[in-house]
């Protein structure tokens, strides 16, 4: 009986990290979405300067381990604004994810047939209007499957924000493990939580995919 009581205590303790993990993941994905879409647009439709800028962002950020980006951004941002570790960590993770998302959206923008742009211009839309109302909605739908994959990767990368002191699921498991010296139980529970989150994410995205699939 004692065993189950301990298990429940441990689970409750680790569970508090769940909200942190979810928060970090949602903020990072949203920030990464904005970065990714904007950079992909600049890459596909921008002038030479913006194309180079967006390409450099993508290449450099993807070349560096995410944990290094988090660490650097935390301390760089810290010089200008005093963000809490949660915000600094999440924004940094989003900045990193943005580079991966920009590649996803770039591919999606490029796979929208060129006739869509021509037809949009032909009814008098400006280039910006055409991108906004015709190309972007199609590109987002085309990007959904790959984006779903990125979402689960960001969920797992959310463990990295602990380097700047954000107590997410994995850190809570470490804390329990350090106290009880029962790593199997602590990390086993963490594993179950991550599994549940990943399955949930996958389900939601599959639903979105079905709901918004483009029929060509």
């Amino acid at each position: 009986m004692d065993f189950f009581q301990d298990l429940a205590t441990t689970f409750n303790f680790i569970l508090q990290g769940l909200w942190v993990t979810i928060g970090v993941t949602l903020v990072a994905l949203s920030v990464g979405f904005v970065f990714g879409v904007v950079m992909a647009m600049l890459r596909v439709y921008g002038n030479a300067f913006f194309r180079a800028l967006a390409a450099a962002y993508s290449v450099i950020v993807r070349a560096v381990p995410v944990v290094v980006i988090i660490f650097i951004l935390f301390f760089v941002i810290a010089r200008f604004v005093n963000l809490s570790p949660f915000w600094a960590g999440s924004l940094a993770l989003g900045f990193a994810s943005g580079a991966y998302q920009s590649e996803i959206f770039r591919g999606a923008f490029q796979s929208v047939p060129p006739g869509q742009m021509t037809a949009a211009r032909a009814i008098g839309m400006s280039r910006v209007q055409a991108i906004q109302s015709i190309i972007l909605p199609q590109a987002v739908r085309l990007a959904l499957p790959a984006w779903g994959n990125e979402a689960t990767l960001v969920l797992k990368d959310s463990t990295l924000v602990f380097v700047v002191g954000v107590p997410e699921i994995l850190r809570r498991a470490q804390q329990v493990s350090a106290r009880t010296l029962e790593p199997f139980i602590a990390f086993g529970l963490a594993l179950l939580l991550y599994l549940a989150l990943t399955l949930l994410t996958t389900q939601v995205l599959q639903w979105l995919e079905r709901r918004y699939r483009l029929q060509m």
Binding site: L26, V27, S30, V31, F33, V34, R79, V81, N82, L83, S84, W87, L91, L136, P137, V140, R141, Y212
Partner: peptide
């Protein structure tokens, strides 16, 4: 529909950024 989703996402980010800024403490400078 998709437009609302996009707007909602942008709004969330904007709100979050805003609340982050207001949470800024008096700067502990180096």
């Amino acid at each position: 529909m998709k437009k609302q989703i996009l707007v909602a996402l942008l709004l969330i980010v904007a709100l979050l950024a805003l609340s982050a800024c207001t949470a800024v403490q008096p700067a502990g400078q180096t």
